[in-house]
Amino acid sequence: MANPALKAAFDAKRFVVAPGIYDGISARVADGMGFDCLYMTGFGTVASHLGLPDAGIATYTDMVNRAGRFAQITRTPIIADADTGYGGLLNVRHTVLGYEAAGLSGIQLEDQEVPKKCGHTPGRRVIPAEEMVLKVKVAAEARRDPNFLIVARTDARTGLGLEEAIRRGRLYADAGADVVFIESPESEAEMVEIGRAFSDKPLLANCVEGGRTPILPAKRLEEIGYAIAIYPALGFLAAAAAYERAFAHLKAEGSSNGLPEGESYGFGRICELLGFPEVWEFDRRWAVLDK
């Protein structure tokens, strides 16, 4: 079942900030921070799972298995990237049912051609709007829990312009999307225009460090009409930099000794994060019977 807290946050007009999660550690850390929502990033999940670009290579099975695992180890509602729905209308239905059954609270579907590409990289092409409308209608009909949200994304801005992107967003909202996601606006003025066009639907802002869209403060995003801001890349960008610093120290020193304070999470802390104290308590309680 979907967590009703996310829909309730939107209904209450509470602005939602969602960090990107991509593996078990990022999911557990983010889950403990008090966010209203977590966002399973396709870019980060594909990178961490396969070590490959987010370019339509990952399958439905790859993604639903990872998403379901994240849902099992967290309490915070999760919206998960599902690319194009992994095929035609029957695939979209299967994907929605699978993501919902996995324990997620929302699914993001986009109108790119297959194979899809990351939204802040070049070369994206979109399918006809009418085809995506059908996908959104199928997705809305397929879900069994009204708290499970359909996020409809259009990548039309980069290739076809802002006017077409807004037109598509409007069509997808009318088809049953709960949240509208206009990918890659290229200025604050464009974001203001998008906000004016969707006063009746929650709008999603994709905040990618170094991406095409300016990153605005939460207060400003709320002022211009957005309801949720996702930060899909923040976690894995920070983690990659931390890996590089730690491994460079090891290479230079031949040891992890002397690693600057704050550069390591600490073994005791990571054990606690991952739930080892519960394992140790279980072992203590059942030690006699286990011999």
Rank of each mutant, 00 (worst) to 15 (best):
A2V: 03
P4T: 05
L6R: 08
K7H: 12
A8P: 11
A8F: 09
F15A: 08
Y22L: 04
Y22W: 14
A27W: 00
A27F: 00
A27K: 01
R28C: 06
V29T: 01
D31M: 00
M33P: 01
L38Y: 11
L38A: 04
G42V: 02
T45K: 02
G51M: 09
L52W: 06
L52R: 14
T59E: 01
T61R: 14
T61L: 12
M63R: 06
G68S: 12
R69D: 07
A71K: 02
A71C: 09
A71G: 04
I73R: 04
T76L: 01
T76A: 13
T76K: 13
A80R: 03
D81L: 00
T84R: 04
G87Q: 05
N91D: 08
V96R: 01
E100Y: 11
S105C: 09
I107V: 14
D111M: 05
G119H: 07
G119W: 08
G119L: 05
H120N: 04
P122M: 09
P122R: 05
G123V: 15
G123Y: 15
A129Q: 02
A129N: 04
E131V: 11
E131P: 13
K135D: 07
A142L: 12
N147E: 10
N147G: 08
V151I: 15
V151M: 08
A152D: 00
R153C: 06
A156P: 03
L160S: 06
L162C: 13
E164C: 11
L171V: 01
Y172F: 15
Y172M: 03
D174G: 04
A175T: 13
V179M: 09
V180F: 08
V180R: 10
F181Y: 05
P185A: 12
I194H: 04
F198R: 13
S199W: 03
D200Y: 02
L203H: 05
L203M: 11
L204V: 01
G210Y: 00
G210E: 04
R212D: 02
I215Q: 08
A218V: 08
L221K: 09
E222I: 06
E222R: 14
I224Y: 02
Y226E: 06
A229E: 01
Y231M: 05
A233Q: 02
G235L: 06
F236E: 03
F236N: 00
A241F: 07
Y243G: 05
E244K: 15
E244A: 13
R245D: 10
K251M: 04
E253S: 14
S255E: 07
S256T: 10
S256M: 12
N257H: 15
G258V: 09
L259M: 13
E261D: 11
E263T: 10
S264P: 02
Y265H: 08
G266T: 01
F267M: 15
G268M: 09
I270K: 06
I270H: 00
C271Y: 10
E272S: 09
P277R: 10
V279S: 07
F282W: 15
D290S: 14
K291D: 14
